[in-house]
Each structure stands twice: as structure tokens, then as C-alpha cells.
Amino acid sequence: MLPLALVFVWQTWGVITGNPRTPVPTRVVAAALQLIESGELPLAIVQSLGRVFAGFAIAALLAIPLGLAMGSFRRVERNVDPLVESFRPIAAIAILPLAILWLGTGTPAAVLIVAYAAFFPIVVNTVAGAKRISPTLLRAAATMGLNRFKVIRTVVVPGALPSIGVGLRIAMGVAWTAIVAAELAVGAKAGGGGSGGIGQMMFVFYAYSIELNRIVVCMIAVGLVALALDRLLRGGLRFFMPWMAR
């Protein structure tokens, strides 16, 4: 009820103040239809999603094995953990200027930022998951003559999966936020270069053609995609790990 009421208040307030550029719901809907019809919005979303998936995949491929190794071998954890903990507090977006310096303003820089952002939640949760496995299970497996790697494959991995899943979900949310930030900043700093994506599109609407309605459309799209990604991941996790609570 309240959302509807707020939309109504927003509409009447915007119409009464009377500036034809003020974003109001009806104009936002019109702008959304335009952007979808012209294919700009779907294209931008697909571009951003492509980067997110690429960065996310890289992060997962690096972080899950590393996390499993850290969680199962005390010595690996001791030696790698300082590095992880030293870089974890550095926000991914802070790395962006370096990424631009190294990789330019195109897709690789954005993918690097996403991978960096997604890496840490996955590592931390994988380590936690691997460590939470009951020592009894590990000892039982060892008693039955399994070697370390078999123990990891048959006991640690399945046991850590729910926690890894949580890490992946958090990482996906972070990755989507990071891509929007990266594209925005690239747009702001590279003079609206042609690398595309939803963040960049928003910045163009702000800086070059001041179209607030379209900015609002992009914001809503960002929110909807975030929701969709979370649902997708949650559904995927439930499908692959039906025993996982929640």
C-alpha cells in the first residue's frame, strides 16, 4: 500500500512543481519504454552482466580452491591469510584507478574490479566452511585410509558447499555493485568512452544529455537486476544443494 501511495505523492508533487524535466513516475515509465524499445537498456544490461559473470567466474575459480587449501592445510592458511587479510579491507573501487592505468578504460579493467570484489567473500566463506567440518568426519575418513586429497574431495568439499554457496551469493551482490561503480567511474574519468554498460549509460545521461527520467530508469534497472541475480543464485544453490537449510 505505502509504495503505491508514495508513487502517487511523487507523481502529483512532480506535476505540481511543474518542471517538465522533473522525473515523475509517468515520465519514467515512458522513458523506460523508449530505452527498452531502442534496445539501449537491454544492451547495456547485457554488457554489464557479461562483465559481472566473467569477473565472478575468475574470482570463483581462484577463490574456491584457495579457500579449500587454506581451510584444510594449516600451513597454507598461515602463509596466505596475511595477504588475504591485508587486501580485503581495500575496497574494490579504490583499485579502479590502478586498473585503468594497467588495462585502460575498457572491459578488462571492469572485469578485474569485479573479480577483486567477488574474490574475498568467496575465500572467507570457503575457509570458514572447510574449517567447520566436524573433526570426527575427517578422522573417520583418514582412519579408513583415504589420503589428504581424497578426504578433501569426498568430505571437505561437500561439507563446505553450503558455506561456499553463501560466499557466492554475497560475492554476486558485491560484484554487481562493483560493476556499476566501475562503469560510472570509468565514464566520469574517461570522458564517456565507448565501453558501455549500465553504469556508463547512467553517467552519460547525467553528464552529456541531462535526462533525469532515464537516470531513474537505470537505477530501477540496477535494482531489478540485483534482485534477479540474487534469486537466480539462490535458486541455483537450492537446486544443487537441496539439503542446505533455507
Binding site: V180, Y206, I215, M219, V222, G223, L224, L227
Partner: peptide
Amino acid sequence: PISGIAWIPLALF
């Protein structure tokens, strides 16, 4: 779901 960062362009305006 709309991240703070997505507000930047509108807030800039």
C-alpha cells in the same frame, strides 16, 4: 536492491 552507488548520478545532479 538499488545500491548507493547507483544513486551517484542522480545525487550529483
